[in-house]
């Protein structure tokens, strides 16, 4: 059980999330799929922090945790994104009685 296991797992979760984001009509599913992708990325980041030695890190080992710091920022962004995304969903539903992404196409005009 090493880096490759986690990376492959991460890739699988990411691609499932990508499929969901591309293929589902319900905007809430799309948002959940995006959360899946975020989590997959976080797994990869933490796995790198755990298993890979960056060049030149020997003299400043505290920086080995940089991957985890990245994960923290990703979680922050995900929180902001989900708050705004769901806000948009509520606004969309209130105005157009739908949560279908395909029908939210007024950007065309």
């Amino acid at each position: 059980m090493g880096l490759e296991h986690f990376l492959v797992l991460s890739a699988i979760l990411f691609c499932i999330g990508l499929y969901g984001a591309l293929a589902r009509r319900n905007v809430i599913t799309v948002l959940m799929s995006i959360e899946l992708m975020f989590n997959a990325v976080n797994i990869a980041l933490v796995a790198f922090a755990k298993y890979v030695v960056p060049v030149g890190v020997e003299e400043q080992l505290g920086r080995m945790l940089t991957g985890q710091v990245f994960a923290i920022f990703v979680i922050t962004v995900a929180a902001a994104e989900i708050a705004l995304g769901l806000g948009i969903v509520i606004a969309l539903y209130r105005n157009r009685e739908t949560v279908d992404v395909s029908e939210a196409s007024i950007m065309r005009r």
Binding site: E58, E59, L61, G62, L65, V69, I72
Partner: peptide
């Protein structure tokens, strides 16, 4: 014993 350990832990990095 550990070089560069004065900034260890997530809090210090952040």
């Amino acid at each position: 014993d550990i070089p560069g350990s004065d900034r260890s832990g997530l809090g210090e990095l952040l």
